[in-house]
Design a protein around this nucleic acid. Structure first.
Lengths: 149, 149
DNA sequence: CGAATATATATCGCGTGCGATTTTATCGCA
DNA sequence: TGCGATAAAATCGCACGCGATATATATTCG
């Protein structure tokens, strides 16, 4: 079957599609690595954040991940079901749920420290090159967020 | 509630997270615009590709979108249910399904031509600036795809 | 020709994302 | 004090993405 080369015409010049498809590509790189840890990519992000500071609330996690409780609550419940975190209402403010790593969760979070190195290799770039690109994309993201309806 | 500023520490320096969260931000910009057309973002991409060349196969669409039939088949069926496309087996090769815009679909695809301009405005950047960034990201994507397991 | 193989699409299950709504708790303020 | 407004999570429905599998058609090769 004759096939078009990707990006043949219509989608070329669409930065949004470049970002979208790069996200898909990143996911494909992460998947086999994270499978070994039994985590999905968003779950991995949550574990990294908790490794940095444990006992954060659902809202604090959401602020850093740009995700909402409607996405995070089920995700965190799956982490809980896997025995990696506990969920507890804050006694000071019963509206708030605090998420804490279990021993097993902390062990997995430590193991996860080797993930970025493996992904770096797949980019075929230096950390400096990636840093330049990252800053440009983050600035774009923040502009988009500021201008979103 | 005291909240961390996004990207406080743990996720800074992770290009993959920058790409991931920029994808979410783009989606938020596109959503209200595409809602007017009754399309999701991946559906919009498919319509743009078909506007460029009609009657493409599921596989050809997938090659350009980096998506698989398990994602595309349901998506295209929803476009069909909305009366925007027709799906027909190719008489030369009965394995292949060709997707063709209906009159209504072509009309929507034409309307969609105004979308990029609105999104451009939300980026607060010139097309030239975005072009530089796009090329860098596309190169990264292609490297990732080449190095994916 | 016919069996093995390859290809194109479809189906299924699971985990996101997110808009809309609900529930529970806290706060502001007369 | 009490009541309306605000805030934090949770719930629900829908549309992706994707791995694994199934099905139907084409192709290859003995």
């Amino acid at each position: 079957m004759k096939r078009k080369s990707p990006d043949a015409d219509a989608l070329g010049g669409h930065l949004c599609f470049a970002v979208y498809s790069t996200g898909l590509a990143f996911n494909r790189v992460y998947k086999p690595i994270l499978d070994r840890l039994g985590l999905t990519y968003p779950q991995y992000l949550a574990m990294v954040i908790l490794r940095g500071e444990d006992g954060q609330t659902v809202g604090e996690l959401g602020d850093q991940l740009f995700l909402d409780s409607s996405t995070l609550t089920p995700l965190i419940k799956r982490l809980e079901a896997a025995g990696l975190v506990t969920r507890r209402r804050d006694s000071e403010d019963e509206r708030v749920v605090r998420v804490t790593l279990t021993d097993k969760g902390r062990a997995v979070a430590e193991e996860a420290k080797c993930v970025p190195g493996e992904v770096l290799a797949a980019t075929g770039r230096t950390p400096e090159q990636l840093g330049v690109l990252e800053r440009a994309i983050v600035q774009l993201r923040d502009t988009l967020r500021a201008n979103a309806a």
